[in-house]
Design a protein around this nucleic acid. Sequence first.
DNA 1: TGTACATCAGTGAACGCGCGTTCACTGATGTAC
DNA 2: TGTACATCAGTGAACGCGCGTTCACTGATGTAC
Lengths: 217, 217
Amino acid sequence: MPAADRNLQWIKPPQQVRSQETLDRLLDAAAELGAAKGFANTTVAELARHAGSSVGAFYARFSDKDGLLNAVYDRYLEEATATADVSLDPDRWEGASVPEIMSNVVRFIVSIYRDKGELIRAFVVRGHTDPSFRARQERLSDHIHAKMAALFVERADELDVRDPERATAFAVTLIAATIESSVLFGELRTGALTFPDEELSVELTRACLRYLGVQTP
Amino acid sequence: MPAADRNLQWIKPPQQVRSQETLDRLLDAAAELGAAKGFANTTVAELARHAGSSVGAFYARFSDKDGLLNAVYDRYLEEATATADVSLDPDRWEGASVPEIMSNVVRFIVSIYRDKGELIRAFVVRGHTDPSFRARQERLSDHIHAKMAALFVERADELDVRDPERATAFAVTLIAATIESSVLFGELRTGALTFPDEELSVELTRACLRYLGVQTP
DNA sequence: TGTACATCAGTGAACGCGCGTTCACTGATGTAC
DNA sequence: TGTACATCAGTGAACGCGCGTTCACTGATGTAC
């Protein structure tokens, strides 16, 4: 079936329901173990066992270990892109103010990182040595950043900055960097002071609004 | 020599100048290769060759591969701590304003990350699986954060925020997170817009000053 | 509906490669007299 | 200053363990008639 092959780079398409289930369980196991201890530290045997499958079944579905990781990553990218498209859709925020959008979006991203942070971290680590992972990471991040920035640029009249395009781009970067590092390095912490999720969201929102010169009530 | 042993956890103390030189070259090679491709992806044989030494010489100095990494990390931590102590010394900034300190410190940290970023990244990756690396990372980061925050808290009258302690702590975190992620993920970039070192410094400084409610000229 | 056969799916022991570590040996440096 | 010996330093081939991958085999599912 050459037609189907065009869409399936890493996965050998299953012919029966049974094997599709096995495949899904392998993907889930990879996501779970990868999040827990990193992909490099997870063995194929461990992965197969965790999925209630076997090493041979694994290689019947994937060309090699990398094939599985790529499949897991693709599944994640698809989910992430879809989520971003829905939650950052301009229509959805019709009539909303910059503070309103900012605070909701920041809170949402924080909650996502709380959920998927460990998995994202595993992808990031992998990206350090694998250019193809790195490239896809950047594509996703560019996509999300652009959608977020667009929401703010549309409302440039609420901002008090020289170059709204550039300032919003930087604000988005601030958000991404701060949340990312808070997850990558555990809870935000400076000496004895800690910033749990809610406070992180509030403070980060405040910082960005002030930076963009937005009047807040 | 039991007295010397107390200070040398991972390194077997050399008895001749010759072996001290070998040891230094091994440390340098580890830092270099680790920065270039990560510690996990660097083999002992490769390391020894790169240092103009041999595998046997390596094991005469270090108990194992981890011993070397720990030694490299300790050397880095010592340098970093000393640099922070000197550059964030309160006396050094006697009479300076918050914007002055902020802009200089941010610029300095960016330049450090430009220099040592790859090595720092290797340590961070290692920290993901090694709790002892992680713990030392946090100790260093706490130390630097505290010193920075202290400079701003001392000048709380220049700030316009409810809780100066907390706000400065968060500002310091913003700085660290943004610079860190800009190095960990390459140059800052949002779609077509890029923020090279100087612009990153300027914009990050501006963001923090506005967040802290500092009047700028 | 039942039977024969082909293909798909799954199993886990065995293989082999890469890399950390060891070890028997050679050469260099230091010390005693 | 020279000689004998001890210790330090360095070498690189060989070993062995862990883990990705293969493969000969068993069982399950689908198809033809």
